[in-house]
């Protein structure tokens, strides 16, 4: 047995460390771990939301859900939305970051303006866009008709595929600043010598982008894409407020389906089953991301 003062001190430190993390663990268990397990447990019941009465039904919720067309439609919508808005965010984000990396007049003002949509509340963003999209008095329709692109007012949110496209565009507008900032931070750390060498080799601006910039951005882009894919996949506010899943269920994604099942159709158990399945799908991305982070920390 080692009873050296060193070992004693280390034991004391370990105890202090646990004491400091204790509040975190308590809160985590109460509001995250317990609800998470409770959600899985709930999914095995048929439960009527207002009275919270119901009965154990085992895995039949899951069997029902996989047989329902609505689940598969919502899953497809979620994927269309995620892939669509994410690709736009990445392309616009890299483009804007490359532009703002150059010497531009009033650069810091430009950066603030770009950052604003990301920080503004989704409620505000949606209200503004619904006003822009307004069929009769909205500025967008006015400009489109005025410039002769269309002759009839466009119904942006009430018909398909317009509603999905509008949603993807608003999502890209709201979230691409995240990509801009992350890419911009990385661009600043690329050594000038790399560009110098490429220039001496006779590479033009486009070749320099593909041969120097893009490979350097690779790592940060992987992280950004994983994170944004996870966040876009679980997006609720923007879609719920902008289209509410409509017309009918054409833009209804999985988070909206969970909400509808629990609080509009009052089927809490079924909603929990949807939520668990949704989480299982997300888990793939989450594990990849967590692994990525752990590897980076180890190195």
């Amino acid at each position: 047995m080692s009873r050296s003062p060193q070992a004693l001190l280390e034991r004391r430190y370990a105890r202090l460390g646990l004491l400091l993390i204790a509040p975190t663990i308590v809160v985590f268990c109460a509001v995250i771990v317990y609800p998470l397990l409770a959600a899985i447990y709930l999914s095995l019941f048929q439960l009527y939301t207002p009275t919270l009465e119901g009965s154990f039904v085992g895995i039949s919720n899951y069997r029902d859900l996989l047989a329902r067309g609505e689940f598969w439609i919502s899953l497809r919508n979620t994927l269309v939305w995620t892939v669509g808005t994410l690709s736009l965010q990445i392309v616009l984000g890299i483009g804007m970051a490359l532009m703002l990396h150059q010497a531009v007049w009033f650069r810091s003002l430009a950066r603030s303006l770009i950052l604003f949509p990301y920080f503004v509340s989704t409620v505000v963003a949606v209200l503004v866009w619904r006003w822009l999209f307004n069929d009769l008095y909205g500025i967008l329709n006015h400009m489109l008709i005025g410039s002769g692109v269309v002759d009839m007012p466009v119904d942006y949110l009430g018909s398909m595929p317009n509603a999905m496209i509008s949603m993807i565009l608003v999502g890209a507008w709201k979230y691409f600043p995240f990509v801009v900032i992350a890419v911009l931070a990385r661009l600043q750390t690329i050594p000038d010598a790399l560009y110098e060498a490429a220039r001496i080799d006779g590479a033009g601006p486009i070749a320099r982008f593909f041969d120097v910039t893009l490979p350097q951005l690779r790592d940060v882009l992987v992280v950004i894409i994983l994170l944004r894919a996870i966040w876009d996949f679980k997006e609720f506010d923007l879609i719920f407020l902008l289209t509410g899943g409509g017309p009918v269920i054409s833009t209804q994604t999985l988070p909206l389906l969970v909400y509808k099942e629990a609080f509009a159709l009052n089927q809490m158990g079924m909603a929990a089953a949807y939520a668990v399945v949704m989480m299982a799908i997300m888990l793939v991305f989450m594990i990849v991301y967590i692994r990525q982070t752990r590897e980076k920390e180890a190195s």
Binding site: A39, Y259, M268, A275, I290
Partner: peptide
């Protein structure tokens, strides 16, 4: 990374 929509049912 966890979606709020999963936690909200038990929290409610």
């Amino acid at each position: 990374l966890l979606p709020s929509v999963v936690l909200i049912l038990p929290l409610y």
